[in-house]
Design a protein around this nucleic acid. Structure first.
Length: 933
DNA sequence: GAGTTTGAAACT
DNA sequence: CAGTTTCAAACTC
């Protein structure tokens, strides 16, 4: 674990571009050696395992929990991730959020809320400052950065934070003596009178010091409403930010960097690689409870039953399978010894506080926005993590997903414009028990990404939801739908399946809501009161039954609960739409594909269409006229892309190799160590596809509100990406990063993330591109695995990156990153690596990312896309979990290839790209902003 | 709101 | 794996 921390720092530094000067020695020594010694694959596994289950450093206590808990965790764990993604999406996509907000005033409010709140609470800030003063090294600075990014704070301010001499020293110390570690946690929670926004920030800092020091500080603020605008008070939201996982920090930081704009460059990414876990939980006292958890890493230490309980409390309606959330929560709450808990902030406030601590650099501009957001009460910000490196804050855990359940998507996205983030989060909370894997990943975020809305949370207890909140939620939900779906149909959905809250509501009569026929069940959420189902057993009361049933279903089809929509590597924009607006979320596609015969994929009978995704090669549809993209077009585009991608990649690689080397080293460190933490980030970092982006579609968009609704986002997005496609490697990177982000976002959150990511990546896009090329990470087998739904916690943990998988689709190059996260991926990579330049590679990546299970299966398979995956028949094909595990663990066949790759890479770590990407982000961001404007 | 259509899920 | 049945959403009236 020690090493990871160090690596993180180094990576951060690299990201900042300051790499060479500051961290070089430190960075390389521990990690590089380690990496060199270890085969690339192995390290990843080891870390991965440790993190996943054990929690980063945390003791296995959490795991010790009874089997029952374990089961839940397995499923629940995934869920949390899921949540994470959404949140991550939000956080990561700050820019995107803004854009989104711009498009929809409400959304903008939500964004502003986070920022504004943060800013608003000066007191909190003071508290934070104190905390910070006590331990300057603490990663909190990162948080501040992150916040700053959100608020568009000057980088300089962060730099002060980030560049803590202490940290650097600590790094050195670490090198010299790994044994000593300082662990810090800061948890900040804030509760509002009416609405509770609790943000707990647990920052674990590991300082390699001679002596081990544990600092604990807790501060609790309950200023809330008083300080905050009354609006905020309306809803209760709990944010938990755990900065526990070091590894994740790297990823996050990299991602976050994107958020930081120009200032980033100035800022030095020296922040320690501390894991961040940010979990946001929204509770509608009434009905809705949503939690978003961002875990870079899962701290086992953090796990507490309390956390679980807490969670449950929050997610009333949602099944709680995720470990991550609980952990995060627990960590914040318990933080028994290790961490200092600072509770006080509302989500928004926290960032501000953090910033304030350091230098109060953060711009308070957000305040105005804050107020706007206040009403929302939904914490959009939740997920942000401050980056160690400083410049840009962070990355957000990507949503799990990319792959979103259709259901989840529906729930999460569509309705509220303003609350998009919150909504997403809520959706995730709501339901998603998805597969273990899915949960873990997303998530997206997200996993699959989605957040339960207010309704989701409805616990039995909380049936009562204040009308006001409900309205609020419903409104958001509506917005969401608008985004996702064509305006005309929105209404329909609302009336029928989606309830005011934006949550699904079913009408099952014979299945007791325990089969996939039930949208609620399929989405991993409990049925709500609004459901008109008969004999419903998909309720918290029947949790055991639900879990059992789920397991059964998963046993038959591991991917049953995995997100149905996966992002695609290809970017080819598909505007098939009848509506010009409706460009496809090109990058996304339905995992299994549809089988429509009479609807021509123009009605919601078609799952692809329903998800606002174009049909792909996996579809068996007849007479496809999917407005989001026809199957035919898809196939063609892919063919075309394959060739182009190869060429581009090869070119870029050569150009950028040199530059990348340094950055890569850092990156590798971070990745290896961090992979677990932030599976999502990798994808972002490595988006190979960026290159391919041209070809590739914009999958992520699908998550994003429908183009129609959200022109701004798209436009910015499109602008940034497309124009640059072919030109420079940097451009490529940017594009890729964007895509990645989209993918990552898991759908909804994706866009935002992308933006951030872009920013981060932009500066070092070149490096990233190279890396991508150089280190063909396998897509994300892991993701696939996770999605596959290994219900088991272990799998989930291993897969931690699952959420990422969605992204993986988009990014071929990113594979490397993914690869880290998921051991399995390597296999694919291997095959892919050889042929990085090969045309097929794109496809492969694509496939990997796309398919949940397929990846695993593919392992051995050659680069060629696996049409199979998409084939409808696959439905039940999901690979056995065991197998997946084996694959992950197994180093045999794949390993060889991996080793080969790694060695080559050793000179430049695949990870480095991430850093670079981060650095680049700034530029990207600016671009994005411009586009927005 | 009732009835029909549709395609996924489940079953054989 | 293919074919059939069941199911509930989507859709129409």
């Amino acid at each position: 674990m020690d090493s990871p921390e160090v690596t993180v720092k180094t990576t951060a530094a690299a990201g900042s571009t300051v790499q060479s000067s500051n961290s070089p020695p430190v960075q390389e020594s521990p990690f590089s050696n380690f990496l060199r010694n270890l085969s690339p694959i192995e390290p990843v596994k080891a870390q991965h395992v440790s993190q996943g289950f054990l929690g980063l450093n945390s003791p296995p206590l959490a795991f010790t929990s009874p089997r029952i808990n374990a089961l839940r965790e397995a499923s629940s764990l995934k869920r949390p991730r899921y949540h994470l993604f959404p949140s991550a999406d939000v956080s990561a996509n700050d820019d995107g959020c803004k854009k989104f907000t711009d498009c929809t005033g409400e959304l903008g409010k939500s964004d502003s809320l986070l920022d504004g709140r943060l800013v608003a609470d000066t007191q909190k800030d003071s508290d934070l400052k104190k905390f910070v003063q006590v331990q300057p090294d603490i990663s909190l600075g990162r948080v501040g950065e992150y916040l700053a990014d959100r608020t568009e704070v000057d980088c300089a301010n962060y730099t002060t934070y980030e560049v803590n001499p202490d940290l650097e020293q600590s790094v050195d110390l670490l090198q010299s003596s790994v044994s000593s570690i300082t662990y810090l946690k800061g948890s900040i929670s804030k509760s509002n009178n009416n609405n509770e926004m609790k943000i707990k920030v647990n920052a674990h800092l590991t300082l390699s010091g001679k002596a081990e020091e544990q600092l604990q500080g807790e501060s609790t603020d309950e200023q809330d409403c008083g300080a905050l605008p009354p609006d905020e008070c309306n809803t209760e939201s709990n944010f938990f930010i755990d900065l526990a996982s070091k590894k994740q920090e790297c990823d996050i930081s990299a991602q976050n960097e994107g958020s930081v704009h120009e200032g980033k460059s100035a800022c030095h990414p020296q922040l320690l690689p501390e894991p961040f876990q940010i979990a946001q939980t929204y509770e509608d006292s009434e009905e809705n409870a949503g939690m978003i958890v961002l875990h870079g890493l899962v701290d086992t230490t953090m796990h507490d039953t309390e956390a679980n309980q807490h969670q449950r409390g929050f997610s009333r309606r949602c099944l709680q399978f995720v470990e991550a959330q609980p952990k995060a929560i627990v960590s914040s709450s318990n933080s028994s010894n290790q961490a200092s808990d600072v509770t006080s902030l509302r989500a928004p406030a926290t960032p501000a506080e953090l910033e304030g601590l350091d230098s109060s650099h953060v711009d308070l501009n957000a305040t105005s926005s804050q107020r706007q957001l206040d009403n929302l009460s939904q914490p959009v910000t939740p997920l942000f993590l401050p980056r160690p490196s400083g410049k840009s804050p962070l990355t957000i855990s990507k949503p799990p997903g990319i792959g979103l359940h259709l259901n989840s998507i529906v729930n999460a996205l569509p309705k509220g414009g303003a609350a998009t983030v919150g909504i997403k989060l809520a959706s995730a909370e709501c339901g998603m028990f998805e597969n273990n894997a899915s949960v873990a990943v997303s998530s997206m975020i997200s996993e699959s990404q989605s957040i339960g809305h207010l309704n989701l949370s409805q616990p039995i207890e909380h049936h009562e939801t204040p009308p006001t909140e409900r309205k609020f939620n419903s409104e958001h939900a509506d917005n969401f739908e608008e985004f996702n779906q064509p305006s005309p149909k929105k209404k329909r959905q609302k009336s029928s399946t989606i309830d005011s809250d934006g949550c699904k509501r079913c009408n099952c009569k014979k299945t007791q809501c325990l089969k996939l026929y039930c949208d609620c069940f399929a989405a991993g959420i409990y049925c709500a009161d609004s459901c008109t189902c008969q004999g419903c057993r998909n309720r918290p009361e029947y949790e055991d039954t639900v879990l059992e049933t789920r397991q059964q279903i998963e046993s038959r089809n591991p991917l049953a609960f995995a997100p149905k929509i996966v992002q695609h590597a290809n970017d080819i924009p598909v505007n098939n739409g009848d509506d010009g607006n409706r460009s496809m979320p090109s990058s996304a596609k339905h995992k299994r594909g549809c089988n429509c015969k009479k609807s021509m994929c123009l009605k919601k009978y078609c799952e692809c269409y329903q998800a606002n995704v174009g049909c792909s090669d996996g579809c068996r549809c007849e007479g496809c006229k999917n407005s989001y993209g026809r199957k035919e077009d898809y196939v063609r585009s892919e063919e075309m892309l394959g060739n182009r991608a190869c060429k581009e990649r090869s070119e870029v690689m050569f150009d950028n190799k040199l530059e990348l080397v340094t950055s890569k080293k850092d990156f590798l460190h971070t990745e290896f160590y961090d992979p677990h933490l932030t599976p999502l980030t990798p994808s972002l970092q490595c988006s190979d596809q960026g290159k391919d982006a041209q070809k590739s579609r914009f999958l992520s968009r699908r998550y994003v509100p429908s183009p129609d609704s959200d022109p701004t986002i798209r436009s910015s997005y499109a602008n940034t990406l497309r124009p640059q496609k072919n030109s420079d490697s940097n451009d490529m990177l940017l594009e890729t990063s964007k895509e990645i982000m989209d993918v990552d976002s898991y759908g909804q959150g994706m866009d935002y993330r992308n933006e951030d990511m872009m920013d981060q990546l932009s500066s070092r896009g070149d490096a990233l591109a190279d890396l991508c090329h150089l280190t063909p990470l396998p897509g994300f087998p892991s993701v696939a695995v996770s999605s596959s739904g290994s219900s088991k916690a272990t799998d989930w943990k291993n897969i931690s990156g699952l959420q990422l998988y969605p992204r993986s689709d988009s990014l071929s190059s990113s594979r490397s990153l993914h690869w880290r996260g998921s051991p399995v991926t390597p296999i694919t990579q291997l095959s892919g690596n050889k042929n990085i330049q090969e045309p097929d590679s794109d496809n492969r990546v694509y496939d990997i990312s796309e398919d949940d299970t397929p990846d695993i299966l593919r392992e051995a398979s050659a680069p060629t896309k696996s049409v199979k995956v998409s084939s409808p028949n696959r439905k039940r094909v999901s690979p056995p979990q065991n197998r997946m595990n084996e694959i992950r663990s197994s180093t045999s066949g794949p390993l060889k290839s991996r080793k080969f790759i790694l060695r080559a890479v050793s000179s430049f770590p695949p990870l480095t790209p991430c850093i670079d990407s981060k650095g680049s982000t700034n530029q990207n961001r600016s671009d994005i902003e411009e586009n927005k404007e």
